[in-house]
Amino acid sequence: MINNNSLIPLILSLLAGLSTVIGAFILFFSKAENKKLITFALSYSAGVMITVSFTDLFISAEETLSKHNGNIKGVLYSLLFLLIGALMALLIDKFIPEAPKTNDNTNEKLYRVGFVSMIALMIHNFPEGIATFISGYENTSLGISIALAIALHNIPEGISIAMPIYYSTKSKFKAFKYTLYSGLAEPLGAFLAFLFLRPYINDIILSITFALVAGIMLYISFAELIPAARRYKYHSIYLFSIFLGIFTIILSHTYSH
Rank of each mutant, 00 (worst) to 15 (best):
Y178I: 00
L12Y: 13
T106C: 09
G158M: 06
I119P: 00
I205E: 06
H235T: 14
I8W: 10
I205C: 01
S207V: 03
I92T: 10
N103F: 14
I146W: 04
S45E: 10
K31Y: 03
F58K: 11
F81Y: 13
I155H: 03
L239E: 07
L142G: 03
S256L: 10
F240S: 14
M217N: 06
T20W: 06
I50W: 05
D104N: 14
E98D: 15
N71H: 12
M118E: 00
Y166D: 12
S66Y: 02
G129I: 02
A175L: 11
G17S: 02
A151R: 09
S45H: 09
D203R: 13
K35N: 09
Y219V: 04
F54S: 06
A151N: 05
E63P: 01
S236I: 12
A147W: 01
Y200E: 14
F173N: 10
A16R: 11
T254I: 13
Y238K: 01
I216N: 09
S43H: 09
I2F: 10
F196I: 04
I159Y: 09
G136Y: 06
L14C: 01
K73D: 06
K94Q: 12
I2Q: 07
S160H: 08
S256D: 11
I96A: 05
T20E: 03
L218S: 08
I220D: 00
N107Q: 11
P164K: 08
T102K: 05
N103T: 13
E186S: 10
N107T: 08
S45A: 15
G74Y: 08
N34I: 11
A214T: 05
I2H: 06
F115K: 08
A86E: 07
Y219N: 08
G183L: 01
A131K: 01
Y200T: 14
M163D: 14
L14T: 15
P164Q: 03
T39S: 10
L152H: 10
R231H: 13
P9N: 09
I92E: 02
S43P: 08
I208N: 01
A185Q: 07
S66D: 00
T179W: 00
S6V: 04
A32I: 04
F240L: 15
H257F: 08
M1R: 12
T140G: 08
T209E: 00
G47I: 03
R112Y: 00
E62W: 05
S43M: 03
E138N: 15
A214R: 02
E33R: 15
T209F: 14
K31S: 12
F126P: 03
L83M: 11
F40C: 05
S236Q: 13
